[in-house]
Design a protein around this nucleic acid. Sequence first.
RNA 1: GGACCCGUGGUGUAGCCUGGCCUAACACGUCUCCCUGUCACGGAGAAGACCGCCGGUUCAAAUCCGGUCGGGUCCGCCA
Length: 598
Amino acid sequence: MTTKTSIRTHDCGALRKEQVGETVNLAGWVNTRRDHGGVIFIDLRDRYGITQLTFRQEVGNEIFELGNKLRNEYVIKISGTVTARPADMVNKNLVTGEIEIEVKSAEILSTCENLPFEIAGESNANEEIRLKYRFLDLRHRRLQDLLKRRDELITYIRQYMHKNDFTEVQTPILTNSSPEGARDFLVPSRLYPGKFYALPQAPQQFKQLLMVSGFDRYFQIAPCFRDEDPRSDRHPGEFYQLDLEMSFVEQEDVFQMIEPLMIELTKEFSDKTILQAPFPRITWHDAMNTYGIDKPDLRYDLKISDVSEMVAGCGFKVFADAINNNGVVKMLHVTGGAKFTRSEIDGLTEKARASGANGLAYILIKDGKPASPIDKYLGEELTNKLVATVGAKDGDALFFGAGEWLKTCSSLGQVRIASADLLGLKDPKKAAWCWVIDFPMYEFNKEENKIDFSHNPFSMPQGGMKALVEMNPLKILAYQYDFVLNGFEISSGAIRNHEPEIMYKAFEIAGYSHEEVDKRFGGMISAFKFGAPPHGGCAPGIDRLMMVLWDMISIRDIYAFPKNGKAQDAMMNAPSEVSEKQLKELHIAVTLPKINDK
RNA sequence: GGACCCGUGGUGUAGCCUGGCCUAACACGUCUCCCUGUCACGGAGAAGACCGCCGGUUCAAAUCCGGUCGGGUCCGCCA
């Protein structure tokens, strides 16, 4: 590989003492300038490295004066002689540190205004200004390395997929609105007034159609668009998935294909140690019961147990009532939790309340004795029994939740996560992968008093048609799975429902008529009537994966040009108004809300 | 839609709780001058902020109160 061009003979990371004596041409940015009166040192920077230039008075007035004019981030090209540095002047921090260039001629290609923040060194300006000047922020070494790493990771994925005989196919960006799921980004059609394209939330239907077409194994580094509010692990609007689908497979085949890739990516692209491989598999039900969340962080071992039977009929009304109302009482064992301060416990109580609990009862084991605000209701015998059942030791804490099963599990799950934070249990050197399997097919929607799909409506119900006809829908499981890394959902996936009759029945249970299904998913359903192979796949979020592997606080850093937390592009000023002419062509009339916030 | 946090020269911070000595401090950057071996060069000097904005309380507001705007985090939402 050479980076030689018409303008330069070498890049700024190339020269060594072997080239001493050669005349070279370099070009790049002025990283720093050190003026010593009779000699000026310039660190010339490009993507490949930094090379020190010297501008000397004795070489000539013209060149020396040009050196005097240089300022940070000017773009220059120079011609000069590679010279060895005196032994005691070698800079061990630079790969080019043994040499420097004595500049004989130079030209300023481009000047630079006063910078909004410094480029040499760390980027520590606030995010708002860094996003506005993203092209400058991207000059920082850290971000350049990050994008380079991103490219390498995606290249690795592509090679892995091709090695396994997957074909990458580009599916449409302008497609149709899908009525389920997230909000769509809509694109008005000029040729068909009043009609809209939608940007794909995922290439879901297309990849299934490719299976019907017989491609057997498809993948795509697929842009996905969802118009939902961002979070620190959710980039606003757009993100990338490794979308993949396989034919003639069962769940196990998908696992065997994707798990080795995740292991390789962890080893190749992070310094984390994989805690367990093959990845442990946890049913959704067990995950909720034991960790209180469907994306458990298994780097730490805090567990929730069911103590309903133990406390049934006890003197504590909250517990007794929960069980009388068909609820449960759950107990979270936090090793080392007795040292939590009052205000930390208040914080944990807030977490529990925020996810639906009425409060947070607890037992702290201090000086070998359990102590609790509720021990007078529980009594010594029951308290000791609860402590013993999980083998809690001196210094531990037990937290209790009581009420409806899912809510109780979830609230203790949040307490579990917050406790791990307080105890510093989230070890960045560990990679705890796991599969969460057997998601329920349906869930009950209390507000609308109806049954909804709990995840992907295109998943195959376990037990097929027989299960749909005979079972309580809320008990039916789907061939639907996620995989999780350190408490982040990296991917969901499923074995799909490829049989039209089962599809109609599955939708019927969720309240969709035959006609509605035809109308909304007609393309796919009709395809399934023409010889559809059993198929399944998954779609790991690659930005999310990189964020977790590289311990980024915000997913925004993973993108070259991220949007801010308000879903705007601060550099391009998107979104923005368009011209009347454009609107007219599209037959769009804009009706602004009364409170006009730009 | 809701809750919480933040806003001080170009950048990052201190000061705010406990109003007055703030005519706002420090570091980096910028500008001028000096310096021939630095690499976060060094030295001397200078410019640059009505403390996001509006209003209130007070003899007195960066500081207290209300509103508003901007940014961030979380909940809702994300099949």
